[in-house]
């Protein structure tokens, strides 16, 4: 349709369009950069808080050990509750015996999962991969290695009084460990409620 003489309007030429498009792209990128920057700053602040809290709990446990204060269930619960109230973080402090789920994840096809941790001086390394309907697991704990493959199975290794289990079932992989009564140490985990930052440690006594 052609424009008549009495019909006024603007024609957005190719040149103008080319000017506007990069500007729009630039603006979108800038906004995205700002968003990421803000997120990383708040994550940094959060991880600082989690880390400082974890270190302070370790200091407290060492202090209690040095001063022979009782490191029992009720005292540790009271300590965890105080940290929870003061920081707003999720805090677990567990003297033995205890069982803890270190990680639990549903693996989609071809998805991989890896966990490394140190439990009372023993190195733990778990690798899992969903290969079709079968999950392939490699477990190493305290220098001992085990491998397993299937849809529904459990791998376990015991060192001293610490039992590590990798439980596979229904596409889920769960890494769990149990510290028996003979273990001389305390497990502690500090997390933010959204799970963005975590401090996991075991304090040997």
């Amino acid at each position: 349709m052609g424009l008549g003489r009495e019909q006024h309007g603007l024609v957005l030429s190719g040149l103008a369009l080319l000017l506007v498009l990069p500007a729009m792209l630039l603006a979108a990128s800038c906004l995205s950069v700002i968003g990421i920057g803000g997120g990383s700053t708040s994550l940094q602040a959060l991880s600082d808080k989690v880390s400082y809290t974890g270190c302070d709990i370790e200091r407290m446990i060492k202090y209690m050990e040095n001063n022979k204060l009782p490191i029992d269930n009720s005292t540790m619960s009271a300590l965890a509750e105080n940290y929870r109230a003061a920081t707003g973080l999720l805090v677990e402090i567990l003297p033995p015996p205890h069982t803890v789920t270190l990680a639990r994840k549903k693996l989609d096809e071809d998805e991989e999962f890896e966990l490394e941790a140190t439990l009372f001086g023993f190195e733990l390394d778990v690798k899992a991969e969903n290969e079709g309907a079968v999950i392939d697991v490699e477990l190493e704990f305290g220098g001992v290695e085990k491998e397993g493959q299937g849809t529904d199975f459990t791998l376990s290794i015991q060192q001293d009084n610490i039992l590590v289990e990798v439980i596979v079932g229904g596409g889920w992989v769960e890494v769990r460990y149990t510290a028996g009564t003979g273990v001389r140490g305390v497990f502690l985990r500090v997390r933010d409620p959204r799970g963005a930052a975590q401090y996991l440690s075991t304090v040997k006594l």
């Binding site: 957005l12 030429s13 500007a23 603006a27």
Partner: peptide, 13 residues
């Protein structure tokens, strides 16, 4: 129209 486009660009920036 280029001037108007520039105007839009300036506002966005």
């Amino acid at each position: 129209d280029a001037t108007l486009a520039m105007l839009v660009v300036m506002i966005v920036m």
